[in-house]
Computed example of a mutant assay.
Amino acid sequence: MQTQTSPQPQWLRSYYFTRALFSLAWIAAAILSGGHSALVSALLVIYPAWDAVANLVDARSNGGLKANSSQALNVAVSTVTTVAVILAAINDMHAVLAVFGVWAILSGLLQLFTGVRRWRSYGAQWVMILSGAQSTLAGGFMITQSLAAVPPTILDIVPYAGFGAFYFLLSAIWLTVGISRKANAKG
């Protein structure tokens, strides 16, 4: 079991802060895009591509892909999603939102599994477990919305990214408090 003063919880805290900041920057760019199609398309492709890279870096920093099968699978799912978003964007935003919905379900389940697995080593994973469950539910909602007659926009994905930012930020803060308490107990 990792202790709260080992480098891994501190790295995980930094990783969660980075994920939160990326999501907040993505949200700002999405809101400020003004519907400009080239920027919207780029943002839609960047989001799952970033998730693939982030999961890859996280898995490699925590024992490698073989030791982190849920993250290895999440890298694959997010990579396939990136390609699927490119293909779906050729059709329309309904297809893009459906792809995001399927991705949210799959990545949410994988995040939930990763959180449960990490709980044993790091604690403070209840937020990531909750995030994975919420992502799964949000994916179902996005699929439902993709079937609506009203054309979706990138703003339909912003709440999903917002909850992700919130959960990553909360996890980072939770780990920071745990690390601080552990340090104070020793000192």
Rank of each mutant, 00 (worst) to 15 (best):
G35T: 06
A30L: 07
I27R: 06
L12E: 05
L21A: 14
S33L: 08
L21V: 10
A30N: 02
I46M: 15
R19N: 14
S14F: 11
A30F: 06
A20E: 05
R13E: 11
Y16Q: 09
T18K: 04
F22A: 13
W50L: 11
R13W: 04
S33G: 08
S33C: 11
S33V: 03
G34Q: 06
G35K: 00
V40W: 04
A25F: 07
W26G: 11
S41R: 15
L43F: 00
A28Y: 01
L32V: 06
A29S: 02
S14M: 15
L32F: 01
L24V: 08
S41P: 14
L44I: 14
I27Q: 05
G34D: 02
S23K: 08
S41F: 15
S37L: 11
S23Y: 03
G35M: 04
P48I: 10
H36P: 04
F17H: 11
T18F: 14
A20D: 01
L44A: 14
A29N: 09
A49Y: 08
P48W: 01
S14G: 13
G35F: 01
A42D: 05
A38M: 10
S14P: 07
L32S: 08
I31E: 04
W50K: 07
L39H: 07
S37W: 03
A28T: 00
L24F: 03
S14E: 06
Y15V: 03
Y16I: 09
S37K: 13
A28H: 00
F17P: 06
H36T: 09
W50Q: 08
W50N: 05
F22S: 04
L44D: 12
S37E: 11
H36V: 14
I27G: 13
Y47G: 13
R13C: 08
Y16N: 12
A25S: 11
A28G: 04
L12A: 10
W50R: 11
